[in-house]
Amino acid sequence: MPDFFNTETQFNYDFLDAKECLNILTNEEKQQLINNKTDVEFDAGETIIKRGIAVSNILYLNEGLVKLEIINEGKPSTIALVESHSFIGIICCFAFKNFDFTATALEKTKVSFIKKNVFEDFIKLNGDFALNLIKHMSGVSNGLFHKITTLSQKNIDGALSMLLLDFARVYKSDNYILPMVRKDLANMLGYSKESVINTLSKFNKEGIIKVADRKIKILDKDKLTQISKIG
């Protein structure tokens, strides 16, 4: 079976993750899913989903990192980062006929496009899968709500600290390359590009991080964590 049916993964959240959700499918259903999916690779910066296109597939992110953007009052706003072994925008796929967001690869990414009608058949015929999917979608919605609410209550220092720590968790390293430019960081945090640049510079001068273009090295993780909590 493909990797997304493998249960040997470390869950980053308390709620049911996408891989565990798929594992409740029967062996026959797993094979049916395999027969009705298409794997596509995207390079960094490529659009995976364009806002407004019809929802004909459920998307599962096998490898890589993806950002989701919506348009608010004519301006793009990054609402989430999607990590490997996750559905892309699952909470919107059954609510609208067309995607209400844009999904963009932040690094080399591999996505499985699963036919929506096949997925819907699993929901109708497999009650355990349907229940797990509801639990998963509820967890995703709750996590997204809390993340957006928390960020909205943070000043630029606190918000940027949270994001830098999130990337360290995603890459499992305190030394990584930011997958987005300063403007994209600003869109995600709800602050100006200048505010992001100035805060990165301040953190660099204070010895909390080392910044070299998009290269980030966290030097004082305890201090950065403290700022993320009180900022």
Rank of each mutant, 00 (worst) to 15 (best):
P2Y: 07
P2S: 10
D3T: 14
F5I: 11
N6I: 12
N6T: 09
E8S: 09
T9K: 15
Q10N: 10
Q10T: 11
L16T: 06
L16H: 00
A18V: 01
A18S: 09
E20V: 05
I24Y: 07
I24H: 03
E28V: 05
K30H: 06
L33G: 00
L33D: 02
N35Q: 15
D39Q: 15
D43M: 13
G45H: 03
I49K: 01
V55Q: 05
N57C: 08
L61E: 02
N62L: 13
N62P: 04
N62M: 12
N62E: 13
G64M: 03
L65Q: 00
L65G: 00
K67V: 03
N72W: 09
G74E: 07
K75T: 14
K75R: 15
P76H: 05
A80S: 15
A80Q: 14
S86T: 03
F87L: 05
I88K: 01
G89L: 01
G89M: 00
I90S: 00
I90L: 06
I91G: 00
C92V: 04
F96M: 07
F96G: 01
K97T: 14
N98H: 09
N98W: 00
F101R: 01
T102E: 07
T102Q: 04
A103K: 00
A105N: 02
S112M: 14
I114N: 01
I114E: 00
K115V: 07
V118N: 01
V118W: 01
E120P: 02
E120K: 14
F122C: 08
F122A: 06
G127Y: 13
D128S: 12
A130P: 09
L131Y: 13
M137H: 05
M137A: 12
S138D: 13
S138V: 14
V140H: 03
V140S: 06
V140W: 02
V140P: 03
S141A: 15
S141M: 15
L144G: 10
K147R: 14
I148G: 04
S152F: 08
Q153Y: 07
K154Q: 11
K154V: 08
I156K: 14
I156Y: 11
G158K: 07
L160S: 05
L163Y: 05
L164I: 14
L165G: 07
F167R: 02
A168C: 12
V170T: 13
D174N: 15
D174H: 11
I177F: 07
L178M: 14
P179A: 04
M180K: 01
M180P: 00
V181A: 11
L185F: 07
L185M: 11
L185C: 08
A186S: 09
A186Q: 04
L189W: 02
S192C: 08
K193E: 11
S195V: 07
V196L: 08
T199E: 09
K202D: 05
N204I: 06
N204P: 06
G207K: 15
I208P: 03
I208F: 08
I208T: 12
I209K: 02
V211H: 07
A212E: 10
D213E: 09
K217Q: 13
K217I: 13
K223N: 13
K229G: 08
K229D: 11
